[in-house]
Structure formats: C-alpha cells, structure tokens
C-alpha cells in the first residue's frame, strides 16, 4: 500500500495565526467598551473606519503585490492594525484622519516592507505618529468623558461632526472637546501648578484621569487574559509597566509637586493598551527573553521622558517606534545561552 509523505512533526499543530489575532482582538473588548462608554460614538466610528480602511488597503496591496488576498486577509493582522489605530484616535476627529492614518500604516509601514512578518515598525504606531505630526489639531479632538459636567454629543451630532465637520448650533469645537488628563498635567506643571492642585481638577478621577483610568483597567484585564492564554509573553508588559512605575516613582519621591504619581502614569493615556497590545506586537519587538525585558523597559522609560519633558502629552507611540528601531540590536546582543555552552558568546 502507498501513502502520502511529508516532513515531521506530524501532530496536529498547537496554534494558528488567525486564532492568535482573534484572541488579541477579543482581549481588546473590555478596554474598547470602556472607551466607548466614556467617550461616545466617535470611538465606534473610528474603529469601523480604520478597520474597513485597513482591510481594503491590505487587499489592494496584496493584489498589487501578487500575493494571495483571501488567505492573507484571513490571518487578521490587518484588521488588528486597524483596530489598534482606531482605538488610539480622538473620537471627534474627522473621518479622514482614520483613513489617512490607516492607509499609511497598512500601505507604507506594512505592505511596502513586505507585509506581515517583515515590517520593522509597528504599523499602527507609524500611522498614529504620521497623524499626530501632520494633523496636531485634529488629533486633540477628545470629547469630555461621560460623567463630567460638559456638553456631550449624541449619535447624530457625532455623525455630523465626524463626517461633515458640522457642529450643533449651540456648540463650538472648544465646548464639545476637552484636554486629556495627560495634556492638562503637562500644561499645568508648565504653569507651576502643583501635582496636588492638578489632581483636584474635576477631570481627574479616583487615581488617574476620569474615565481614562477605567479604560486602562479594561485593557489591563484584557492583557492579563492574553498572557494567561499564552498569546503574549509576560516580559514586555511587565518590564514596560515596571520601568514606567519606577522611573515615575523616583521623580515623584524626589519632587511630588512637579511630577505625576506612578499610578497616574500607569493608568493614563495609552499605557495599558501600549503595554499589552502595542509593545507586544511580535514582528517589531525584541524576541529573546532578556531582550524583551530591555525592550519593554526602554519603552517605559521613553514614554515617561516624552510625557514629562517631550513636546507631546503622550509618548507611547514614539517610545514604541524608537524601541522598534533598537529591537534587532537588542536581539543581537541578548542571545540565550545555548544548552551545553557556558556563556552565550562562546562559539
């Protein structure tokens, strides 16, 4: 009797790219729901526009590059890039912000480098940085979070603002948007407010910015679930959050008036989204065990530096891209010890 042959191993395989991506998307749900709850319909529009653009751009590029379209779209990586970028965008930004950012992320940062597996930089963060450098005004259009005494736009008003740029008659752009806690902290510390005075602002909540703290808690939960399901390694989030905690603790202890508290930094802005979903993007991150620790620590420290002394209120995207650049070198310098060899450099 004759049989088909192939190479080992033969057992049913343990994991699958599209299942991995689905798991990551599922883990985004709690954080995304919190974001939706606090910041309104704009969040949903951003997600839909970015996801749709990502899929279309990926399909078009695959077609142009002569790669299998259906099978590659099925891996879910483009959709995930779109979703991650969509979650990072201000909910009241005009629709084309999400389109431009996602196009740049998929077309330039991902496909022009060779598609999934070959992009040296995190595509979603490349898209984000392009937007924040090119369209700084539109990138500040965050509405006041739910629960703050301010004008909140309903579904139709949000739709009109996002897609037609039309505001309700009784509103101005300033009245429907609000500075984010990271923004407030940056400006007010610049104006010599003390940290205690800043915290007393109604826009701050129990331990960080109102609303933002729960968004971060949501992403933290999703991230821990991801780690439990072995979809991500613990080293990058742990070292990123750890380094962010310790560096902010150091300055906070040194001068509690001029620096934000460690808890504020951990639960503000995109910290948790960045730690569990952005920095852990395997393609652009360091891959050795020790390397992941350095990589995560670098992101944590750079994030703090940019938030505190840099020109932007939030630093996750820049920190991730800077460390993406360093990842190949980190990998090269941190090889594991090979079994039966005394030290990694021994050959």
């Amino acid at each position: 009797m004759e049989f088909p042959t192939r190479s080992s191993p033969y057992l049913p395989l343990h994991s699958d790219l599209s299942r991995l991506m689905q798991r990551v998307m599922l883990a985004l749900v709690p954080g995304a729901l919190a974001l939706l709850w606090f910041f309104g319909w704009g969040v949903l529009f951003n997600l839909l526009i970015a996801a749709g653009t990502a899929l279309l751009a990926e399909a078009a590029m695959l077609q142009l590059r002569g790669r299998p379209v259906r099978a590659t779209l099925h891996d879910g990586s483009a959709l995930l890039t779109g979703l991650l970028l969509g979650l990072s965008l201000p909910p009241l930004a005009p629709w084309w912000i999400a389109v431009v950012g996602t196009l740049f992320a998929i077309v330039v940062a991902k496909q022009l480098y060779g598609g999934i597996g070959y992009n040296p930089f995190n595509p979603a963060m490349v898209g984000f940085v392009v937007l924040i450098i090119s369209f700084p005004l539109q990138m500040t259009l965050w509405p006041p979070p739910q629960g703050i005494d301010a004008q909140v736009l309903g579904l139709t008003d949000t739709l009109r603002l996002v897609f037609a740029g039309a505001l309700p008659a009784d509103a101005s752009l300033d009245s429907v948007t609000m500075a984010t806690p990271l923004d407030i902290t940056k400006t007010r510390i610049g104006l010599n407010y003390t940290w205690g005075e800043i915290l007393a602002d109604p826009r701050f909540g129990a331990f960080a910015g109102h609303g933002w703290e729960w968004v971060n808690v949501g992403f933290l939960f999703g991230g821990i679930w991801l780690w439990q399901r072995r979809a991500i390694h613990w080293q990058i989030p742990a070292s990123m959050l750890g380094s962010l905690f310790f560096i902010s603790l150091f300055f906070y202890i040194a001068d509690a008036d001029s620096f934000g508290s460690p808890i504020f930094h951990l639960f503000s802005g995109a910290t948790m989204l960045g730690a569990f979903f952005i920095a852990t993007d395997p393609v652009s991150a360091a891959t050795t065990r020790r390397g992941r620790l350095y990589y995560g620590a670098g992101i944590g420290i750079l994030t703090y530096v940019i938030r505190t002394w840099g020109g932007y209120p939030e630093g996750i995207a820049f920190a991730v891209l800077l460390m993406n650049m360093a990842a190949p070198t980190i990998d090269y310098l941190t090889p594991p010890r090979v079994f039966g060899r005394r030290d990694p450099e021994e050959s």
Binding site: L20, S77, I116, G117, V283, A285, T287, P335, V338, G340
Partner: peptide, 18 residues
C-alpha cells in the same frame, strides 16, 4: 505563513536556540 517572530519557538527549544 510568514514568520511573525512571536518567539514561541524560543520558549520551547530545549537546546536554547533562536
């Protein structure tokens, strides 16, 4: 599919390779 450098293989390699 292309390698996404997830490094799951690094974790299971008994020889400590990459």
């Amino acid at each position: 599919s292309p390698c996404i450098r997830c490094s799951d293989c690094v974790d299971v390699c008994p020889a400590g390779l990459l």
